[in-house]
Design a protein around this nucleic acid. Structure first.
Lengths: 227, 227
DNA sequence: CGCTGCGTTGAGCTTCTTCAACGATCGTGG
DNA sequence: CCACGATCGTTGAAGAAGCTCAACGCAGCG
């Protein structure tokens, strides 16, 4: 059926037989969310995890005074909120859908059984968590060791590499969300974009970004120059 | 033998039979490190992971201009550097022994085999990685959403809870290391300790800490008050 | 047409870092 | 045993980076 087709395109189910995919498909709940809807909140009982089929989901923390730190933005094919599945506790952050999305939900109990008699599924899951850890360690490094211009430069270069060969691309999230992801606020981000433009590093037009001086951005990202 | 005895006290080997522990013991390299020795460096080929048997190891990143961010400090019973095992790449940080230590080393290839036919070992490993992810998400939250006094207050409360029932305990790492863990520098940390003392929240005597006003510290940690 | 959300800009201020100097402690070698 | 240097921690003064608060432009949409 349709569900199995989607599952077969998800990394963590790589290498599973059709029969095994069917077993997985049997435990899935197929869910739709509208833009802005909460999937779960920080502290909720963790009863399972999700995979994004279409759309996008942001996972974030909020400080007492309302500032928001985006930990991760997940797109199609990516699992999220696996932590409580294996660690048996509550969701450690909030998850909100930032565009109309379709998610598959996997209940903890059923999924743990599957993993138990499916070594390659277990290995895939270990690989997925490890990758997540690596991304987190980059984020930590970025937050504590780089200034905001450096973080932004890294992000722009990353987006550019991901988007193929040209030096032009569109931001994949709103600038205010980008600010939150970079651990800063929209005002600061805006000022840095302006400075980068003045220095001739980039040209900005709404969500469109043109990289004019890649080397300059790389120096910024490495902390070898300032704005 | 001796190795098996140590393994039996490590969380990720919980629930393994004596026979299975022997299989694990067979692939272990037993290693000793002197204080200050590097276990591996950022970017090294990841050929296996480690478990601390005795002593302590800090895992950290360094910025281009030399500032250091400690990601984690591992003590007896804790595995570290599992990421490259499952993600097949390089170590994403540096690891240095901060006191004379004994480590068990597990080569990737051998260990992956063990996991493959040992579902409960796989589950334990998944739980361990998940816990690590949760800790990282706390660190990220802390770095981006709290000011330094709040981070320090959290850390002191955490240490105090860990150390039993009294309001007196010793810092488990040097203050300069603590500064690095909190994402700041020794000067700033020192000033904050002074302010906390003036406000009557704590009393500091070298590495000894006396908590005088737990509620005050909690308010700081929650961002509900300032120094 | 006006509302609402997003982005930008300016002024002032807070927090933290930098740089420099100094005190204390500890281990080592004379 | 003392002296010395090294490491660690503390303190002060000055400066940089980023945040807060406030105002405003602009676009999309009911």
């Amino acid at each position: 059926m349709d569900i199995r087709k989607h599952l077969s395109q998800v990394d963590i189910f790589n290498g599973l037989s059709l029969q095994q995919l069917d077993e997985v498909a049997r435990i899935v709940s197929d869910k739709e969310y509208k833009k802005g809807e909460l999937v779960f909140s920080d502290g909720d009982e963790g009863i399972g995890f999700y995979i994004v089929i279409s759309g996008r989901v942001k996972v974030y923390k909020v400080s007492p005074d309302g500032k928001e730190q985006i930990m991760h933005i997940f797109g199609p094919g990516q699992p999220f909120a696996e932590v409580p599945v294996f660690e048996g506790s509550r969701y450690p952050a909030n998850a909100e859908v930032i565009e109309h999305s379709r998610l598959f939900f996997f209940p903890t109990k059923d999924f743990v059984k599957l993993i138990h008699d499916n070594p390659s599924l277990a290995m895939n899951m270990l690989a997925s968590l490890s990758q997540r850890l690596k991304q987190f360690s980059h984020l930590i490094e970025s937050l504590s060791l780089k200034e905001v211009p450096g973080r932004l430069a890294s992000y722009l270069l990353y987006l550019n590499d991901k988007n193929g060969s040209t030096d032009e691309f569109a931001l994949d999230i709103a600038k205010s969300q980008l600010a939150s992801f970079l651990g800063t606020i929209p005002e600061t981000l805006s000022r840095i974009f302006t400075k980068m433009t003045i220095k001739g590093l980039v040209r900005i037009n709404g969500p469109q970004v043109f990289i004019l001086d890649r080397t300059g951005l790389e120096n910024l990202a490495e902390g070898e120059s300032k704005l």
